[in-house]
Nucleic acid binder design. Structure first.
Lengths: 232, 232
DNA sequence: CCAATAGTTCGGTCACGGCCGAATTATCAT
DNA sequence: ATGATAATTCGGCCGTGACCGAACTATTGG
């Protein structure tokens, strides 16, 4: 097995948006099911299966079968290190791998957190509910939403980078993402990420140092009232 | 400017074989002209120019104009670090950045060295000359070679991974590479890399710790006699 | 001034690879 | 047994992006 260009092969694996999303989820150090990984990547199970097989082949991931699930995790700390150093180049902050098993009970986490790169928890639901209630978002197919004309205007007024979100490769634009604490779908996909970005950029929300918990700032509370007519 | 998926964007830049080849050349810490970079990547100047512009845009590279040349180098140590950690994943060894300016005079270097990933110097020329002398390689176009049927058989007998080399994306298969010490073209491209790989794998040659110098082993000398009917 | 060289921009071609639908296998639940 | 869920393989579609030829600009040197 000759390695004509080893660097490009590994980098190309990480260079696909869907695979990168999966890898970033696995940066928490835990093992995730193929379904979960397909979900954060915004692709179908078949597509995800192909991606995962390739990454296992390249020794980026380790797979473990358990019942009818297969769990995937990063193959080694070196993989995590490489991903971190790449994210550092892009000015992103990688959340260090912490093995807090009790994270499911955290009330702050249930209130507001990131689900990979978009908002989840009560705040994520408030945003999603407000968008659907005002007719900005309409269900489309089984797992997507369509952004209506009024939704487009609303996002522009809010300062959401719609162009950037639409350029996000073949990633789903407005995906339904099942919220594990609320048990209902919130907005994810490229649009969900762009909205979350707006929250952070305007200082409405702040990521806490570790983990996925997000703190809603005072101006964030006011924004929820004025833009999403909800009080939390 | 929203970063919907920062990781994949950086990784995708490094994930192209041509760009990866350029980056690996720049891992020596020096600045290189656009022509040189096009050359090791095995692409035309236009294509290289586009690649370089994109990498400068993404702050992976820094460019400096000097006369009618433009010199490109890695933008920071962080970039080098990220590349190293990726190469480590693939089991490759990154050659540490040494600034030996006197490398042009080194007689060992003139005798045998790697030119990015293929053999250069007298040994590289011996191999190339032998292949052309026996009709295994024929000039094709201005800067390429064609591997003849007899060349194909010869490579198979030698244990060169032709299939692997042919899969190397859009990289040129058998490129002519101007040898700076011999002033004649030697074999490069995917085939040149595969041949060099064979030399290393069979123990005919060994990379020295630092720099590009390659040591021809005793069995390597014998192999040059038996397979390439040349004594050095 | 003219020829040669380095580099870039533009336009058009083409193939690789990501994507999904459909079908298949395996496990779990009733 | 029967149906539901998790995961995979296969086949075919299609868009992104890498590539090159041609034309253009800038610098150097005779």
């Amino acid at each position: 097995m000759i390695t004509v260009n080893a660097l490009s092969e590994v980098a190309a694996l990480m260079g696909d948006p869907a695979r990168a999303a999966m890898l970033q989820l696995m940066m928490d150090g835990r093992a995730h099911t193929a379904s979960d990984l397909a979900h954060v990547a915004g692709v179908t199970a078949q597509t995800a299966s192909g991606h995962l097989a390739r990454m296992v082949d390249a020794n980026l991931l380790a797979a473990r079968a358990q019942g009818r699930n297969r769990f995937y995790r990063l193959a080694s700390g070196e993989v995590a290190h490489a991903i971190e150093s790449l994210m550092a180049l892009a000015g992103e902050r990688a959340q260090p791998a912490s093995k807090t098993a009790a994270w499911r009970r955290d009330p702050d986490l249930r209130f507001c957190r990131t689900c990979y790169d978009h908002l989840a928890g009560q705040v994520g639901m408030v945003v999603t509910d407000s968008l659907t209630r005002h007719g900005h978002l309409e269900p489309k197919g089984a797992r997507d939403w369509a952004l209506t004309r009024s939704g487009e205007l609303f996002c522009q007024r809010l300062g959401v980078d719609l162009d950037g979100a639409r350029q996000a490769g073949t990633r789903h634009f407005a995906r339904q993402c099942l919220d594990w604490s609320e048990r209902r779908p919130h907005i994810s996909g490229a649009l969900g990420a762009a909205i979350a970005d707006t929250f952070f950029k305007k200082g409405w929300a702040e990521r806490l140092r570790r983990g996925r918990t997000v703190r809603l700032t005072d101006s964030g509370r006011r924004a929820l009232g004025s833009h999403f007519d909800t009080s939390v």
